Lab assay of single mutants.
Amino acid sequence: SIVTKIISIVQERQNMDDGAPVKTRDIADAAGLSIYQVRLYLEQLHDVGVLEKVNAGKGVPGLWRLL
Rank of each mutant, 00 (worst) to 15 (best):
S1W: 13
S1F: 10
I2V: 08
I2M: 13
V3R: 11
V3A: 09
T4E: 13
T4I: 14
T4Y: 13
K5E: 06
I6Q: 00
I6K: 00
I6L: 10
I6P: 00
I7Y: 06
I7R: 03
S8V: 06
S8M: 11
S8L: 11
I9R: 01
I9W: 04
E12Q: 11
R13Y: 11
R13G: 03
Q14G: 05
Q14T: 07
Q14S: 09
N15Q: 12
N15D: 09
D17C: 15
D18Y: 13
D18N: 15
D18A: 10
D18W: 10
G19N: 09
G19A: 04
P21H: 04
V22K: 01
V22Q: 04
K23D: 09
K23I: 03
T24K: 01
T24A: 05
T24E: 15
T24I: 04
R25P: 04
R25K: 14
R25W: 07
R25Y: 06
D26R: 02
D26Y: 11
D26E: 08
D26G: 01
I27C: 01
I27Q: 08
A28T: 00
A28H: 15
D29N: 11
A30D: 09
A31N: 01
A31P: 01
G32S: 06
G32M: 06
S34E: 07
S34V: 08
S34K: 06
I35D: 06
Y36N: 11
Y36M: 11
Q37S: 08
Q37V: 14
Q37R: 10
Q37A: 11
Q37I: 15
L40K: 14
Y41E: 02
Y41H: 05
L42I: 02
E43M: 08
Q44E: 09
Q44K: 13
L45R: 00
L45P: 01
H46G: 06
D47E: 14
D47W: 08
D47M: 12
D47T: 13
V48D: 13
G49L: 03
G49E: 02
G49V: 02
G49D: 02
V50Q: 05
V50T: 05
V50I: 15
L51M: 12
L51S: 02
L51Y: 02
K53S: 04
K53L: 08
K53N: 15
V54H: 03
V54L: 06
N55H: 10
N55Y: 12
A56S: 12
A56H: 11
A56L: 10
A56D: 12
G57A: 07
G57N: 07
K58Q: 13
G59S: 08
G59R: 07
G59N: 10
G59H: 07
V60Y: 12
V60Q: 15
P61T: 12
P61G: 14
P61H: 14
G62Q: 14
G62F: 14
G62T: 15
G62C: 15
L63F: 07
L63W: 06
W64A: 00
W64D: 01
W64T: 00
W64N: 01
R65H: 05
R65Q: 07
L66H: 04
L66T: 07
L66R: 02
L67H: 12
L67G: 11
L67W: 09
L67S: 14
